[in-house]
């Protein structure tokens, strides 16, 4: 095994500062922290592509079949059965005419039809909607609870902290999937399953963020500016909300995205196992569970939902990576210019 002789690491902090200075110099105005973060994020190629992809998927899902009674531009419904045309083969095509294809064609059933003739595009779009709804609700619920509990535990320490740490220990003993499955069963007894399921998932996925925020707050609370605020008579709630939480925003935002990606996968897994969204409603996990045996004969029934889950989860993960780089330049792979030079010299 050969190990390249690495030159002494240029401290990443200096590098990031130089980069920020370069960003600022372009307009010859100094940038605020928020502007710097935004610019760093925009410069992160993978994160930008992911944002566009995610926006595209979300717009497609909600505009095509509509939501909550508002009709969309797609004329078929995901519950409407019909006659199966051409074995339910998908009519969507991208192959240009000069290669023997029909060009970009949408067709009658772009993603094909299932065995009862339901339009698979509508079904998949409905599943995508569910995933996105779950992602948003879980993201909000888990982030709010996690951030508040973490900050409170880190600030007060003592028994609040002890209770929190025991609760996170609980999740070592009961696997997340198991707890979520049991709660999912309870949630499915109420009417609006998806929203309730999302709330429930949010209630079990906050512990990771709480731990991280607690760690940050434990070190932040010893800083002088916190002591200054306290000595000027600031209330505890003000210290936590105005001084401590804004300084942990990086950790919070980044982990919210990872929690969202986890929640999307968790929901699809639960629906696959039969503890999440149930028929006649549609979910991407449920679709895969229904059609996994159709792989040899009608593979499209299997490929579409899986690809969309993968696309959403991957985009969210890359988004989180971009946000981390933007918020915490010390960890970035921003040494890109240096690395290019190195590759050339190698």
């Amino acid at each position: 095994m050969t190990i390249e002789k690495e030159p002494t690491e240029v401290p990443a902090v200096l590098l990031a500062e130089a980069e920020d200075a370069a960003l600022a110099r372009k307009d010859s105005v100094s940038l605020s922290q928020g502007q710097l973060v935004r610019r760093r994020f925009v410069a992160h190629r993978a994160a930008m592509i992911s944002t566009v992809a995610l926006a595209f998927i979300a717009v497609m899902a909600f505009s095509s079949i509509g939501y909550a009674g508002i009709p969309g531009w797609w004329d078929k419904d995901y519950t409407m059965a019909g006659s199966v045309i051409d074995g339910g083969r998908p009519t969507f095509s991208l192959l240009p005419t000069w290669l023997g294809g029909t060009g970009l064609a949408w067709g009658e059933h772009p993603f094909g039809q299932d065995s009862t003739g339901k339009d698979y595009f509508a079904l998949v779009m409905r599943g995508t909607q569910q995933s996105i709804i779950i992602a948003v609700i879980v993201g909000i619920v888990a982030t709010v609870i996690g951030a508040v509990v973490g900050a409170v535990a880190g600030y007060y320490r003592g028994w609040v902290d002890a209770v929190l740490m025991r609760m996170t220990d609980l999740f070592i003993v009961i696997p997340l999937l198991v707890l979520a499955a049991v709660l999912g069963q309870i949630a499915s007894r109420t009417g609006n399953t998806t929203v309730v399921l999302a709330l429930v998932l949010g209630l079990v996925t906050w512990t990771g963020l709480a731990r991280l925020v607690r760690g940050e707050v434990l070190s932040l609370r010893e800083r002088e500016y916190v002591a200054a605020a306290q000595s000027m008579g600031a209330k505890t709630s003000r210290v936590i909300l105005k001084h401590l939480l804004p300084n942990t925003i990086g950790v919070i935002v980044v982990n919210a995205t990872f929690a969202i990606a986890g929640a999307i996968l968790l929901e699809t897994s639960l629906s696959y196992l039969g503890f999440g969204v149930k028929a006649p409603d549609s979910s991407l996990g449920l679709l895969i569970s229904q059609y996994q045996n159709a792989f040899t004969n009608r593979p499209w029934l299997f490929w579409w939902p899986g690809m969309i889950i993968l696309a959403i989860a991957l985009s969210v993960n890359f988004l989180g990576d971009g946000l981390r780089d933007a918020f915490d330049p010390r960890q970035t792979r921003k040494a890109r210019r240096r690395s290019k030079k190195e590759e050339v010299s190698e």
Binding site: Q292, G306, L310, A313, L314
Partner: peptide, 14 residues
């Protein structure tokens, strides 16, 4: 690794 993080287990199994 990002790919594996985002992979639905049951789908990859098939």
């Amino acid at each position: 690794t990002f790919m594996f993080f985002s992979l639905p287990v049951f789908w990859a199994a098939v």
